[in-house]
Amino acid sequence: MEKSSILRPVILFFFIIVISLLHYLTPLHLPYLHDIFQRLYYLPIILAALWFGFRGGLSCAVVVSIAYAPHLLFQWGGHLTMEMEKYLEILMYNIVGGVTGLLSQREREKTVELQKTARGLEESYQKLQHQSERIITIEEQLRRAEKLSTLGEMAAVLAHEIRNPLGSIRGTAEILKDDYKPGDPKHEFIEIQIKETERLNRVVEDFLHMARPQPADMKPCPIQEELETIVTLVANDARERNIKLVVQPPPSPIIIKADGEKLRQGFLNIIINALQATKPGGSVIIATKTYANGLCEIQFRDTGSGMDEETRKRIFEPFFTTKPDGTGLGLAITKKIIESNGGTLLVESEADHGTTVIVRLPQPTGEKS
């Protein structure tokens, strides 16, 4: 841009000098050449008007007039009646320079206005696109809330109609179990009955946790301590599966304001899923970091088989599961826990390339990390 602003005046000055020299050096007995050179002055005038607008065109016309006037006055003798055409040409230089510059300037102003309008339309489009994405997100949340509302209405009935009979069935099975020794087929059948009763009870418990709104008890929560506690709980399971479970410490302690007990439940669900998805010899890495905008991010990376895009989109839907014995409520509950603490839960995954679960939680203003 700077080179252009310097080069253009140089070009105009060069044109004026060359044309003026042609005038002064050409003999007067060749008037047809002088007429041609006289018209050539319009070239720098029009260029100046196009490049610099009204002021540029008029200024260039004045410079041309000054450069041409001595030739007219001294070489042609200054006879007004004989050279009236040449004097009128000087007037035309200024008229053409001013009018062309004015038109060019207005065109440039219109171009600037159109560019501003285009930028405004682009910004409006981006805002509309952003709002559209937010509306889609809100619609998804409303659909999920509608499902949860339906679950909530059913929760009380399920709690009464299922949990109490389950307790009775389990209690009866445990009494009958004492009547048979280990190795007896009936003893094994009763153990299966007890295990299935426990599994069904877990489904009901998960269902109730999903359906009932649970207020969060927000307190200062050291993230690293919570993660290390959970890893200690599942360390034996990881060893049995021959999976390397690692918690990478952050550069400095990170404290957030959250419901620690519920976060532990959510983190535990994520780590158990990661261990179950990882083959023997693989690894599950947990890393924590903070951002300048006050967000704390916890990443749970596994080297499992990953999942395709269709599965990834549905993993937070209640009762959707890829496990034969899964309830499909674990990740839905985990997402609800994270969101109740003001955070977000994202999943990045690709088939045969592992999965990364990303939890982002806000840090209280003024907290050191």
Score class of each variant (00 low, 15 high):
Ile135Ala: 12
Leu151Lys: 02
Glu161Ser: 14
Leu151Thr: 02
Leu80Thr: 08
Tyr87Thr: 02
Gly120Ser: 07
Thr117His: 12
Gln129Ser: 14
Ile136Gln: 12
Glu153Trp: 10
Ala155Asp: 02
Gly78Leu: 04
Ile95Glu: 03
Glu133Phe: 08
His160Ala: 11
Gly97His: 00
Thr150Asn: 14
Glu109Thr: 03
Ala156Ile: 12
His79Met: 07
Gln105Pro: 01
Glu109Gly: 00
His160Glu: 14
Gln131Ser: 09
Val96Glu: 04
Gln115Cys: 05
Leu103Thr: 05
Leu151Glu: 06
Val99Tyr: 01
Thr137Ala: 15
Leu88Ala: 10
Thr137Asn: 10
Pro165Ser: 05
His130Ala: 15
Asn94Cys: 15
Tyr125Asn: 13
Thr117Pro: 01
Leu158Lys: 08
Leu158Thr: 06
Glu123Asn: 11
Glu139Met: 03
Tyr125Pro: 02
Leu91Pro: 01
Thr111Met: 13
Ala155Asn: 01
Gln141Thr: 00
Gly152Trp: 05
Leu142Ala: 00
Asn94Val: 12
Lys86Asn: 02
Leu142Ser: 00
Val99Thr: 05
Ala145Cys: 02
Lys86Gly: 00
Arg134Phe: 03
Arg144Pro: 00
Met82Thr: 13
Val99Lys: 00
Glu123Thr: 11
Ile138Lys: 10
Ser149Ala: 09
Ala155Trp: 00
Thr117Leu: 13
Met82Val: 12
Ser149Glu: 08
His79Trp: 07
Ile90Trp: 02
Lys110Trp: 08
Arg134Gly: 01
Glu161Ile: 04
Ala155Ile: 00
Met84Thr: 11
Ile135Glu: 09
Leu102Gly: 00
Tyr93Met: 05
His79Pro: 02
Gly120Ile: 06
Arg134Met: 10
Glu89Thr: 15
Ala156Pro: 02
Pro165Met: 06
Arg119Glu: 14
Leu148Arg: 15
Glu133Leu: 13
Glu89Phe: 10
Ile136Lys: 14
Ala145His: 04
Leu88Gly: 04
Gln131Ile: 05
Glu133Ala: 14
Ile95Tyr: 04
Met154Cys: 05
Ile136Met: 06
Ala155Pro: 00
Ala155Ser: 10
Ala156Gly: 09
Gly101Thr: 04
Val112Asn: 07
His79Lys: 08
Ser149Leu: 14
Ala155Leu: 01
Gly97Asn: 02
Ser124Val: 05
Leu102Arg: 01
Met84Val: 11
Leu114Ala: 13
Val99Ile: 15
Met92Ala: 13
Leu121His: 08
Glu139Asp: 09
Met92Ser: 11
Gln105Met: 05
Ser104Ala: 15
Thr100Trp: 00
Ser132Asn: 15
Gln141Arg: 12
His79Ala: 07
Arg143Val: 04
Ser149Met: 11
Met84Asp: 07
Thr81Trp: 09
Leu151Phe: 14
Ile138Ala: 09
Lys127Val: 09
Glu146Ser: 07
Leu121Pro: 01
Glu133Ser: 11
Ala145Trp: 04
Leu88Glu: 08
Ile162Gln: 12
Val99Gly: 00
Arg163Asp: 12
Ile138Arg: 14
